[in-house]
């Protein structure tokens, strides 16, 4: 299945785009997704280690499963306020 991952802040600047598109297997876990992004986009790997993933605007756990229609985002450590 094809998925899009929104990128923000340093992740967006490092990869020079606001969204990544990946072809992944059904039933992919968030942990596996992070490994796959790191493998395909090595420049993001250091930041991914410290980042969360959100699915449909909620923080996901490593075990959460990604579905095709999910709104997916990589959430680097936040610094609002």
């Amino acid at each position: 299945m094809k998925i899009q991952i929104k990128l923000f802040a340093a992740a967006r600047e490092i990869s020079e785009r606001g969204e990544l598109e990946l072809e992944v297997a059904e039933g992919l876990s968030v942990k596996a997704l992070k490994l796959k992004i790191s493998a395909e986009h090595p420049k993001l790997s250091e930041l991914i280690l410290r980042s969360a993933v959100s699915l449909n605007r909620e923080f996901a756990t490593d075990e959460s499963v990604v579905h095709e229609k999910d709104e997916i985002a990589l959430i680097p450590p936040v610094s609002g306020g």
């Binding site: 923000f8 340093a10 959100s54 959430i75 450590p77 610094s79 609002g80």
Partner: peptide
Amino acid sequence: VPIWKKEFWADGKTEWVH
């Protein structure tokens, strides 16, 4: 809350705060 700040330092460098 997913909000991020970027520093613009006086020495000309910029830096996302993570």
